[in-house]
Amino acid sequence: MNTSLSSSLVIVVALLAASLPFFTERVFGLIRLNSKKSVWLRLLELLVLYFVVGALGFLLESNAGNRFPQGWEFYAITACLFIVFAFPGFVYRYLRKSAD
């Protein structure tokens, strides 16, 4: 897999994973709860998915053969970008007016 395709794959997976906690009442889209998910559980799920997408990116970068060391700046920027990717799901869940 070339680097352009792997970069695009990581971005698409990040877009989907960032909105997943807000689009479904299931934890990670798999585990059904008896009650509604709280905001804190959604944020915890968002944090775990951030690390899962980061691990996928790390795996694809290592597979390409040239893994580069990253500083704190990289992680700060990617965390902020992941939060921006979660914005559509947040708007859908909390800010959208219902059509009652």
Rank of each mutant, 00 (worst) to 15 (best):
residue 45 E to T: 00
residue 60 L to R: 01
residue 21 P to H: 10
residue 28 F to D: 07
residue 77 I to Y: 12
residue 87 F to A: 14
residue 88 P to R: 15
residue 76 A to Q: 11
residue 9 L to C: 07
residue 96 R to F: 04
residue 74 F to R: 12
residue 76 A to N: 03
residue 17 A to I: 05
residue 61 E to W: 10
residue 93 R to G: 03
residue 84 V to R: 14
residue 16 L to Q: 00
residue 45 E to S: 10
residue 54 G to M: 13
residue 9 L to Q: 04
residue 41 L to T: 07
residue 47 L to G: 12
residue 30 L to V: 14
residue 31 I to Y: 05
residue 22 F to C: 08
residue 57 G to I: 08
residue 17 A to S: 12
residue 1 M to L: 10
residue 34 N to A: 11
residue 99 A to W: 15
residue 76 A to S: 11
residue 22 F to P: 00
residue 66 N to T: 14
residue 75 Y to Q: 11
residue 14 A to T: 00
residue 10 V to G: 02
residue 40 W to D: 04
residue 73 E to N: 09
residue 12 V to K: 02
residue 29 G to K: 07
residue 53 V to G: 01
residue 92 Y to R: 13
residue 78 T to C: 13
residue 34 N to H: 10
residue 4 S to E: 06
residue 86 A to D: 02
residue 6 S to A: 09
residue 22 F to W: 15
residue 58 F to S: 07
residue 66 N to A: 11
residue 60 L to S: 07
residue 98 S to R: 03
residue 100 D to Y: 09
residue 16 L to S: 01
residue 26 R to K: 13
residue 2 N to I: 10
residue 33 L to A: 07
residue 40 W to C: 11
residue 12 V to E: 06
residue 56 L to W: 07
residue 22 F to E: 04
residue 29 G to P: 03
residue 84 V to M: 09
residue 81 L to C: 12
